[in-house]
């Protein structure tokens, strides 16, 4: 099967000598991100779909949910799964049906930073303990890879989870009624925090650190660390790949730098979500009045 093209020796030497002079090929600062764009579907009834672009990298995320029986050993928890499979949309180098290393790392990183950091409260997905719960499923599709897919996927996933609405339900004894979107305003998911991934690449035995590397920069690097944290500075996971040794102090500075980026991403997502909500809020104040969480007005019998 075809492989992704590797940069030539000249290309990588040029990139490295530029980096030694604090220059990047796209004239960014070493810790600067490419412009991030975040799009939601234009249809106001569609929730939980995001399209994230960081430079030329593009990822779409789709959240769906269904009602299932919970696992017998986890009766009080709903199920949350993240599914990411790379496809030849990224280029001919990807083989279908045979997960490669990037794909394995990607799903591991997302699992550690979002699922196992309890970003989504799975207990809130339980409907009747041991019988019914929601299965929230996140599908990530990487459309274009120009470096930084960890960061892009994490951002897309967190934004999609915040954008998603699950159907409302009502329990009467053993009877569960799940309401259609048209019957009752769907409900947001309970997110406990919003973790984001920041990847830092190392060059020259760890002396040069670069954030948001492009594909070419990624192919030339010696090692990387992926830090997942939320805007409060709580670190969810740190993963370090590649053979280059990194001393503890520089790790601390990486974490601090990542925090800065995470605050930036969090603000960006929040702003995009607010803007989306404002644009789609055609009902204005009526929306609050129509919310399913409001108390129901019981009509008094006549006479």
């Amino acid at each position: 099967m075809p492989h992704a093209t590797r940069p030539s020796t000249n290309e990588s030497n040029f990139l490295l000598s530029a980096l030694r002079e604090n220059l990047r090929l796209d004239s960014r600062a070493l810790d600067q991100y490419r412009p991030i764009s975040l799009q939601f579907p234009s249809d106001p009834d569609v929730h939980g779909q995001t399209d994230v672009r960081i430079g030329k990298t593009r990822v779409i995320c789709n959240i769906s949910c269904e009602v299932i029986t919970p696992y017998p050993d986890r009766k009080f928890d709903g199920v949350f799964t993240i599914n990411c499979e790379l496809s030849p949309l990224m280029g001919a180098g990807v083989e279908v049906g045979r997960p490669d290393q990037t794909e394995a790392l990607l799903s591991r990183i997302l699992d550690k930073s979002i699922r196992r950091s309890n970003a989504l409260d799975t207990e809130s997905l339980c409907i009747i303990a041991g019988q019914k719960c929601f299965h929230v499923r996140a599908d990530l599709h990487v459309l274009d890879d120009d470096g930084g897919i960890f960061d892009a996927c994490c951002l897309a996933l967190v934004a999609a989870l915040q954008h998603f609405r699950r159907p409302d339900y009502e329990v009467h004894g053993e009877q569960v009624t799940v309401f259609d979107v048209r019957e009752r305003e769907p409900v947001r998911l309970t997110l406990q925090h919003h973790p984001f991934c920041v990847t830092t690449s190392y060059y020259d035995a760890g002396t040069i650190m670069v954030q948001d590397a492009t594909l070419l920069e990624e192919q030339c690097r010696e090692g990387e660390t992926v830090v997942s944290m939320n805007r409060h500075g709580e670190v969810c996971q740190i993963a370090k790949y590649g053979g280059v040794p990194v001393d503890a102090l520089s790790m601390l500075s990486v974490v601090n730098q990542s925090w800065e980026k995470v605050t930036m991403m969090d603000a960006l997502v929040r702003e995009a979500l607010l803007k989306d909500e404002r644009e789609k809020d055609k009902g204005g104040r009526m929306k609050a009045e129509l919310s399913a969480e409001n108390e129901r007005v019981m009509e008094r019998p006549v006479g």
Binding site: R58, P88, L89, M90, G91, A92, L143, D144, D145, D146
Partner: peptide
């Protein structure tokens, strides 16, 4: 719309959209 693939297109009809 894509940079990695040789040829690509987004196609949206009334019912569905496909990349």
């Amino acid at each position: 719309p894509l940079h990695g693939a040789d040829g690509s297109v987004t196609f949206s009809s009334k019912l569905c959209s496909i990349l």
